[in-house]
Design a protein around this nucleic acid. Structure first.
Lengths: 345, 345
DNA sequence: GACGATATCCAAAGCGGTTTGAACCTATGA
DNA sequence: TCATAGGTTCAAACCGCTTTGGATATCGTC
């Protein structure tokens, strides 16, 4: 059942039928209804490829996911980000065109998607402090929204990001207020923009109170269980070990907790832990009550916001930069306590 | 730069240029080279929409990811599965069209993708024991490959799956050989086909040795850290507690380990743990040495196999069912030991 | 009654490829 | 020498939709 068939059936021209179905005004209400009804009863479904060819629009959004070169690993937050975005796309008739490619092939992937006209815009994942993709995409001309930011100049493109700086500053201030001074940071890889901002927030908390930044307690790496474990185990073996740990993901926090327990310490009593929590589906911070004190910022929400922002740009053709900064919620759980308790150490 | 432009430039007809680029034989080698060169230097890239319209092929594979109705959560293995498949797609010029939709909307999503001709085939994720999607897809007529299987009748469709039954049987036999008799199973949701098979494997190990199946130690649920923790914590509080635990995912195993340590037990000494490990990127079973004894079956490999299988079917138009059963590797780590040590309990 | 405005509809020309059917050469064999 | 076959190339139709630029009918207005 093509448009032509339907038109013939209705004794109308394809033009009119097309217009009737697409809500143009130059069609009488009567025929519009007639067409709509016929379309429904005959199960007419426009051929998407043909429409794309005619309109030049792809009705699809490109998501190019970087694979970390070292371990071909995908950041687990990506799934939830995408499912958030997917809700919006589904509602507005856009498809998700996905590619998971190593860093090195990214530029080629973007270029090819643009040349092939296979998407109307991009969501950029895994923004680095110094991210060449921003310039590339500006050059390519399609609208895009960055999940995260890339370095200092954040005016020239659209983005949706959590306020990692404030989150980590506030978390650190919270620990300082509890009397902690030896606070460790188990951060993500700091070429990633979000990790860079988190580190700055962590440092700012000390600086603003005139305290020295505890560089000796600051580490960074891929956010795995083992990273948290190794970092915590190492530092807990020191004579001047930290009394509190700030981690960058729930999964590192779980590793840190393991090291803490193995060292015979008690989380929340002798060692405090606070973590960032993206609230991804299969890794909950506790079940009924929270397991860790945490800065929460649901990545699913970021996905929704980014998707809507991009679609708005595509449909209005207004590519002026837009921004959304999401404030993490500071959730107090049982994993933090005052420093006083472990004085005797 | 369209085909027509290129043809004019070369003083050839669009027909010839098209044929030259697509490897038809009715073109002399000389002109083929000339065309190829011109295409490259002028950066000609065929318009995908136009080609799709003309050929009727979409050059895209549909991945419809089910969101668990309860928590809108996505199985974390999916990312790695997809990145495995992505390698194959990229090499063969296929795109990934993705949709994450709640159970309830799945049928509609499949139907719409088929009607809109937007994909050439499907990969089915998250197969259930009783999965209506199989019949639906057979009815829809596009080729598809199931990641996993759906119940007993596995002849009528193509699939790629790990041998969950054998994996769990062998793991359980291993524990039995170590003298364990009170063995717990912390399984996934058993409406999922893989979880169902795992349970059967677990039971078979007992049955084959004439031992009673320890139903009181068998639980199932969403495979989260908390699931592992809760199940282990609960059972360890019993008088006749288990001496070993088989878990369905690394993440549940981590929860179980937490409960074990909190209970003052020592994993691998007083309580043994063995787990299934999909080898997903960000959740490694240990770093240099394994953390858990495990049945390993990399989901990334399953992704590659499934993708290749599907593409073969699409390109040969031979939809006869094909199957790949992947044998899990049994990896012995420090989390398992003989039962003798905890006799005094 | 003529005219412009408005509402409604349509033929035909794209969009950018693929594919069918035929034409044109050139070499081969009778 | 001519028919035949094989190797190359092309014009034109087609895929199914959108959109441009009228055409036609209706209506109010002067």
């Amino acid at each position: 059942m093509t448009l032509k068939d339907l038109a013939k059936l209705l004794q109308l021209s394809p033009t009119t039928v097309s217009r009737a179905l697409n809500g143009y005004t130059e069609v009488s209400e009567a025929t519009r209804l007639r067409v709509a009804e016929a379309a429904k009863t005959h199960g007419y479904q426009p051929n998407v490829q043909a429409r794309k060819l005619a309109t030049g629009r792809a009705m699809a959004i490109g998501h190019v996911i970087p694979l970390s070169q070292t371990h071909e690993m995908v950041n687990p937050t990506f799934t939830d980000m995408l499912s958030g975005a997917g809700e919006i796309y589904a509602a507005q008739g856009y498809d998700i065109l996905m590619a998971m490619v190593p860093e090195a092939d990214q530029e080629a992937t973007y270029r090819s998607m643009v040349r092939k006209r296979t998407v109307d815009g991009f969501i950029v994942h895994g923004a680095q402090v110094d991210d060449r993709r921003i310039d590339l995409l500006r050059e390519l001309g399609l609208p895009f929204v960055v999940h995260g930011r890339a370095g200092e100049n954040t005016d020239a493109y659209s983005w949706v990001d959590a306020d990692h700086y404030r989150g980590f500053r506030r978390a650190t201030e919270h620990l300082l207020a509890l009397g902690h001074r030896c606070i460790a940071l188990v951060n993500g890889v700091e070429t990633m923009d979000f990790a860079h901002r988190r580190r700055q927030g962590f440092e700012a908390a000390f600086i603003m109170q005139g305290l020295p930044v505890p560089h000796q307690y600051m580490t960074s790496g891929e956010m795995t269980e083992h990273q948290g474990y190794d970092a915590a185990a190492e530092m807990l073996s020191w004579a001047d070990r930290p009394t509190a740990i700030v981690t960058s993901s729930l999964i590192s926090a779980m590793g840190a907790r393991r090291a803490i327990e193995e060292a015979g310490e008690v989380m929340g009593k002798t060692i405090s832990v606070i973590t960032f929590d993206d609230e991804i589906g299969f890794l909950k911070n506790g079940y009924k009550t929270p397991m860790f004190s945490a800065m929460q910022s649901p990545v699913r929400v970021a996905g929704r916001r980014a998707a809507q922002m991009l679609i708005d740009q595509i449909e209005t053709r207004d590519f002026a930069p837009r921004r959304v900064l999401l404030e993490p919620v500071l959730l107090l759980g049982p994993s933090c306590g005052p420093v006083a308790l472990h004085d005797q150490n």
